[in-house]
């Protein structure tokens, strides 16, 4: 029992130490925001890497998420509510929940893990030390551009996912139920609220930031060679996915 409490205490202390270290990382990166113009090529590079290169994956996920949402919603509405409202019901679900959360989760897999693997490899092969020895701060050079891109590119990817999601939903509605476009998109439009979309994008903003921050933090703290990098990759993915879902809950409570 005593051992258990001791163990628990140690874990709690460790948790707060790590949370503190994450905040310090974010704080140090944030201080370089004033020099963003001098670092624009680094930032643009990461926006390309994190944002543009994720578009195909996000389109794929968006279409299928929309399609599944459409089938599910149709099944639930059938017999109770007119299928004329299918477009509204599906699109609202996509805008406030499916778009941001699914985008963020696949980004956690693609981007969070790759940030951790890249920085982790640099750490264990002394490339981070090399940067420091060349008087280049790794937090400016590596972390700031990635974190910034995480915050701003995930909302943009979410807009894309929202858009193709609704299209995917319609395609399925048309094939399965023969729902004409005026009816489907008419109800999407009727119930469309910019607030729904915005709240989804606010979520996406925090999900993206979280993913990039965790990727950087885990990467910088990698030890133990190639094996360590493998572990760091998994750790970054698991941690950021868990934090995305936790964030989702907290933000949903706050926003609605």
């Amino acid at each position: 029992m005593v051992e258990f409490i001791e163990y628990l205490g140690k874990r709690i202390i460790l948790f707060f130490q790590q949370a503190g270290a994450v905040f310090i990382l974010v704080w140090k990166a944030a201080r370089y925001l004033s020099k963003i113009w001098n670092n624009r090529s680094l930032v643009l590079n990461q926006m390309l890497e994190i944002g543009v290169r994720s578009i195909p994956l996000v389109i794929f996920v968006g279409i299928f998420a929309g399609a599944v949402a459409s089938v599910q919603t149709a099944y639930q509405l059938k017999g109770y509510i007119s299928l004329n409202y299918l477009g509204a019901a599906t699109s609202v679900a996509i805008f406030i929940e499916l778009g941001p959360v699914l985008t963020a989760l696949v980004i956690a897999g693609r981007v969070g893990a790759s940030i951790a693997a890249e920085i982790g490899t640099m750490k264990v092969t002394e490339q981070i030390d090399a940067l420091e020895s060349l008087a280049i701060d790794p937090i400016r050079y590596l972390a700031m551009p990635r974190i910034l891109s995480g915050f701003f590119m995930i909302p943009i990817l979410t807009i894309i996912a929202d858009f193709v999601g609704v299209l995917g939903a319609y395609v399925v509605a048309y094939i399965n139920l023969g729902l004409p476009p005026e009816i489907f998109f008419g109800s999407v439009k009727e119930f469309f609220s910019i607030l729904n979309v915005m709240s989804g994008l606010i979520k996406a903003f925090f999900f993206g930031g979280t993913t990039a921050i965790i990727g950087c933090y885990v990467g910088f703290n990698t030890t133990g060679g190639a094996e360590g990098v493998g572990k760091a990759t998994i750790r970054a993915f698991v941690l950021s996915s868990a934090l995305i879902l936790l964030n989702d809950y907290i933000l949903s409570v706050l926003l609605f």
């Binding site: 490339q127 030390d129 090399a130 940067l131 060349l134 008087a135 701060d137």
Partner: peptide, 20 residues
């Protein structure tokens, strides 16, 4: 510190080249 480090050249045991 960064100013000071500019006076140093450091050849790492592993060379530590940036592989990207």
């Amino acid at each position: 510190l960064f100013h000071l480090r500019k006076q140093f050249g450091f050849l790492f045991q592993s060379a530590a080249l940036f592989d990207s």
